[in-house]
Amino acid sequence: MEKCCRLEEMIRKEGLEYDVITEAGNDELSEHIRSCSDCREFVSDLEKTSDSVKSLLKVTVSDSFDAVLRSRINSVRNEQKKVRVEAVSLYSKVFYYASGIAAIFIAFFYISSLGLFDNNTDGPLPSLNSEMSLASENAVSNDKSAIDSLENMSKSVQDDEDLRLKVSTGE
């Protein structure tokens, strides 16, 4: 009696759309497999083949894998943090410089407005002179506090620079 190759031929043509080892179809072919010893033996051969492939030694990662990955992730994370801090620091730097410049302008206009007042001292009322000298004394002290606040501002810019350096060096 000739060997039955019905299932084998079907598979060779890639026409069997279910995994013959683990699944059964509801078709006439499945009925045939159940009753044909040749086809059942063929399925069993495929199963043994699959088992030998599965038995190939599994390769696993080395023991240091997690530690190496963690340190790589950490350095990536620090890199990202640095970029973020630099962006923030650039923003605040611009803000500080802009407010510094604005303060210089305000101080300048304030001083020049006092100066304008000074130029008009040829008025007919000499009693105003004492007031005027008082005002110009005030102007000097205002001027001084303007300089102080400018110094403070440049100091805070410096502080910000220090902070940025500290963060970027990871302190």
Binding site: E8, I11, R12, E14, G15, L16, E17, Y18, D19, V20, I21, E23, D45, L46, K48, T49, S50, S52, V53
Partner: peptide
């Protein structure tokens, strides 16, 4: 998915031919 299964059967058939003597 059907193609996955038909190719899987076929792949095992080819492998069986190659390792028949061993199994």
């Amino acid at each position: 998915t059907g193609t996955v299964k038909s190719r899987l059967n076929r792949a095992r058939l080819n492998l069986r031919d190659a390792i028949a003597d061993y199994i």
